[in-house]
Structures are given as structure tokens and as C-alpha cells.
Amino acid sequence: MLPKIKSKAFIRLLPQIFELREQGYSYEEVTAILEKDYGLVLSIKQFSVYLARYKNSHMSKVEKQIETSQDPIKSDSSTNDYVFGSPEHKAAVQKETEELFRSNQNVGLR
């Protein structure tokens, strides 16, 4: 298998690899399973390099998916109750802007 094909196959199999590792399988055992069940032939060194390379990127993607599925819209503003561009929305934005402007007027160079 070519290196790019191997890495793509490895990425595709990451969930199964993590599951095997959580079950207590060693690198040697996981590489043997990958070869036997999926035809992915990797040395122990290749396996450890791929795992180190793709582990963090896979975890960050999973975390992002979890965040977006739990809270798709994050906003600290109180204006999210209004339809964008409506008179209520404009008034809320104006009020928030005035409050922020007033609070920043006391800060200055002396």
C-alpha cells in the first residue's frame, strides 16, 4: 500500500484503533488485527507515528462535533432573542452599544 493510502486507511480506522487500545491491546496486537481484518500492513514504528500524528486531530474534531451538537449557537449577547434586523434587535444593539461606550469613557490616557 502507498503511504497516502495507508494514512487514509489509518484515519478511517481510528475509532476502531482507539477502541482496541482502550480494551488493553498492545501496539503489536493492534497492528496484527489491522493487518488480519483490514489488510493494513504497518510496522510498530509506523503505527506509533500515525497514532501520534492523528490522535490529536481526531480528538479535536470529535470535541468540535460534541460542542456543536450540544450548543450550536453560542452568544453572550442578550440580542439573540430577536430576529436580526428587526426593530427590537436594533434597539437592543443600540442599548448594548451605549452601555459599552459609557463604561469605556472612564478609561483614558492621563
Rank of each mutant, 00 (worst) to 15 (best):
L2P: 10
P3E: 06
P3G: 01
I5S: 04
I5Q: 08
I5E: 08
K6L: 04
A9R: 10
A9F: 07
R12Q: 13
L13E: 06
P15I: 10
Q16S: 03
I17E: 04
F18W: 15
F18N: 12
E19T: 07
L20C: 03
R21C: 02
Q23K: 15
G24W: 09
G24F: 08
G24R: 10
Y25W: 10
Y27C: 14
E29W: 15
T31R: 04
A32H: 01
I33T: 09
L34Q: 07
E35D: 13
K36R: 13
D37P: 08
Y38D: 01
L40E: 05
V41R: 13
L42Q: 03
L42E: 08
L42W: 06
S43Y: 15
I44S: 03
I44G: 00
F47R: 09
F47K: 08
F47G: 09
S48V: 10
S48L: 08
S48R: 12
S48Y: 07
V49Q: 14
A52K: 06
Y54M: 14
K55L: 10
K55I: 08
N56Y: 01
N56L: 00
N56E: 00
M59C: 03
S60R: 13
V62G: 07
E63R: 13
I66G: 07
E67G: 15
E67S: 13
T68F: 07
S69W: 06
D71P: 03
P72W: 13
P72G: 13
I73D: 06
S75E: 00
D76P: 00
S77C: 09
T79Q: 05
N80W: 11
Y82G: 00
Y82N: 00
G85Y: 05
S86H: 03
S86F: 03
S86N: 03
E88S: 10
E88Y: 09
H89A: 00
K90Y: 05
K90Q: 06
A91L: 11
A91C: 07
A92D: 00
V93M: 06
Q94E: 06
Q94C: 04
E98R: 01
E99M: 10
E99G: 08
F101Q: 07
R102K: 01
S103K: 12
N106S: 11
V107S: 15
G108V: 00
G108M: 01
G108I: 01
L109E: 10
L109D: 08
R110T: 12
